[in-house]
Nucleic acid binder design. Sequence first.
RNA 1: GCGGGAUUAGCUCAGCGGUAGAGCACUUCGUUGACAUCGAAGGGGUCACAAGUUCGAUCCUUGUAUCUCGCACCA
Length: 914
Amino acid sequence: MALGKFNAAEVEARIYADWEAAGCFAAGANARTDAATYSVMIPPPNVTGVLHMGHAFNNTLQDVMVRWHRMRGFDTLWQPGTDHAGIATQMVVERRLAETQQPSRTKLGRDAFTQKIWEWKAESGGTIVSQLKRLGASCDWSREAFTMSGAPGAPQDVSSGNFHDAVIKVFVEMYNKGLIYRGKRLVNWDPHFETAISDLEVENIEVAGHMWHFKYPLAGGATYEYVEKDEDGIEILRETRDYISIATTRPETMLGDGAVAVHPSDERYAPIVGKLCEIPVGPKEHRRLIPIITDEYPDKDFGSGAVKITGAHDFNDYQVAKRGNIPMYNLMDTRADMRADGNPYAVEAAIAQKIANGEQDFDEAMIAAMNLVPDEYRGLDRFDARKRVVADIIAEGLAVMVDNPDFDAEAEADPDRRVGNLPTIPKVENKPIMQPFGDRSKVVIEPLLTDQWFVDTDKIVGPALDAVRNGDVKILPESGQKVYYHWLENIEPWCISRQLWWGHQIPVWYGPSVTHVTNDDGTASDDWDTQNPVHFCGATMDEALAQAVDYYQPSGAFGYLLPDEAENAEASISIPFDEHGQPVRLWRDPDVLDTWFSSGLWPIGTLGWPEDTPELAKYFPTSDLITGQDILFFWVARMMMMQLAVVDQKPFDTVYLHGLVRDAKGKKMSKSTGNVVDPLDLIDEYGADALRFASAAMASLGGTLKLDTQRIAGYRNFGTKLWNAASFGERNGTFDVPHSDAIPDATLTPNRWIKGEIARTREAVDTALTDYRFNDAASALYGFVWGTFCDWYIELTKPIFDSGSEAEIAETKAVYAWGLDQCLILLHPIMPFITEELWGQKVRPKRLIHADWPTYTAADLAAPDADSELGWVTGAIDAVRSARAQMHVPAGTCICARAERTASIAPVTQPNSL
RNA sequence: GCGGGAUUAGCUCAGCGGUAGAGCACUUCGUUGACAUCGAAGGGGUCACAAGUUCGAUCCUUGUAUCUCGCACCA
């Protein structure tokens, strides 16, 4: 059968199915005996995901490396799988419930909702996997993993493995080692998803904002001399004030102020430090007085130099408040609306005032329960509350006033021109401010004081830094190392608890704490406290129960356990009796773990840890990690920390980081800009090989990735060129002889020359891929196949096929067939489909995966009498000339114009004629 | 503010201590012989700027400018 046109769509589907059916991608396929191992972990795409250009690029690079190693006989594993992606997936499924008029998440309840997610996953969770297959990804799909496999409620057949147990085991181990703790901290709170998120999930974006200047009146109408001096110490302003001026961008948080802070060296406010001032919001009769304190934090030169301290709603203030033991009043609920719970404002304010006066002790729990939002603001959206507060303060005349630049006294005096301007207006500065947004929800993040679980990153960061510093783990390009160091050296505790339902539920059960107290009369009793519960952390309910028994037994006459008759028997335990003679009830932490906590265990988790599996022994630590630099902190650094903390081994040898794929002009692809390129469209139009070749060609170390479809079209053409080269060979009968792996002998100069060129190309490709220089490999191949093999060698063989001797033709056929075969082998990692197709159609009767990567060198193949490329080229031209002589072609005619020009033999008089 | 990166042909980008490279675009010519998704020929660059190191700098050093990306951030 003659070669027809190359139909990418048809070929790709057929060949991929053949590969899978033949088990070409299974771990260890094509491995030599005693082969070294090569393993790669796919960066698990979100199970909700669809393939975008970043995936296409990233997975192409992985596939190139994996195929290259597999062909070289390595025992190769490319481990695929998907990530459960807590927030993203919960968001998608919630949206879908709404679209299909199904009950909402909250109506369904936790169990039913997670069941919906499992159903959704079974239905459409495989989308991205099938898309990766279209790209040609040679993952071992039989090992496909999922970061929620094995979780309660998971269908048995969903995915192989039990990732859940691994995640839970790690949590328990880290908890037991003191690497994980729970605490009340100010965290980034996403009011849309109503969950805490980590620092990394917050995007700070500059938006237009305002800074309002308000007066906090001094208590009891006290006054002081306010003196402003310039740089030279010369007095520029002196006035008697009965207030302190405060600037804020967030007036709604004034309600939770605990103090006003000034810098200790700020002379302007020295007279009033230690005095009280009044928060100018809320009902007059219950306005709170707060102290004026000193702290290093305020900047004398910014604003008025005085800062209101709202510990529960600002990260800087939080630190000040902790230093100064200032109470932190939480003003908002989980949706960032002004709180509507608790006692009426009058009651709460009175208590707060006692605290401010030092007349009442306070603790965190008590403060957290207090609601200091005035009644009329309760339940308001935070931004509505801001408007109300501002309006109320201004109406009361407690805003700082400044000259109105628009005020025109004459005009105001003239009844016809009067516009009602006032000579002074409230001081409001328009000012760009950095505002935190949730990376998924896109709503403004609120610092919120809540109880959360944290990884004590300080304790596990050391080995992760050392491994890179001492070269155990290499990060490419090198600039990635510096970024890695910079982040890890300044690492903050990692908040890992999420108030979501889709995820690994934290394996901690709480129970009331019990303390023995000796009463005044000498009797002993137990003090039960559910506000400050004890933790029982265990991989299973039974483990937690055992701990609970140990804890509670010594504290009383608790001899045995009783099964709880409550509905939720799983999460409760009965121990007779507490102080009221009631069973002791445990309750499980409802929160789940940050998705990145589980994906941080991807390397060991997918290989079967904590079981001591053969795969773990063989493929871990993995070889290369190829991923986007945007998840260096999210994922790479955390894998480093966690693998080292859990199994005391590095997760991989080398990290290859690449940038974001941008459009042809270098702009970020985004839906709103409308410049998103769908890789599947590109595959449809140009074929997967063209997209892959373009990806490889773009992938210079540290280079920018601008995707130009013109370029992809060019590589599609390259495929056509290759196809036509095969077609030329076919027409000349080069594939008539059964395929042989043996390197054919050559006596004719062009044949001897091309063998050397092929060997040089093989060396170039190997060198390039060894150094992760995909673009070098691509350009070496492009240049060789098009510029050398097609432009020169084919031209050189024409006269031989036309008029050479039988022996010459036979030799040339053999060399040509072998040469094309070598082209296909070298191209295969980048262009697997077209090479495989040519292989199956004509060149060699086996799956290419069984074609071993060549190891010859130029020295092996180049003839001993020609040690330089120029020598070979010159010889080749001689061959052309002698062939021409045999054909009696008139002098001056050119068969290979370029060859003649290079050797400066003769001017081209009739280009391309024969 | 801290930290990366960039600046080379019209465009997009490689590269390198010793004659400046590719693709695309452009110009001219060429289609019955693998290929028009093609072939042949060709034009086009003070390698951002300045100083330094060197026999020699686009490359190394320092500085400047412009651009860009992370991280943080002043109420």
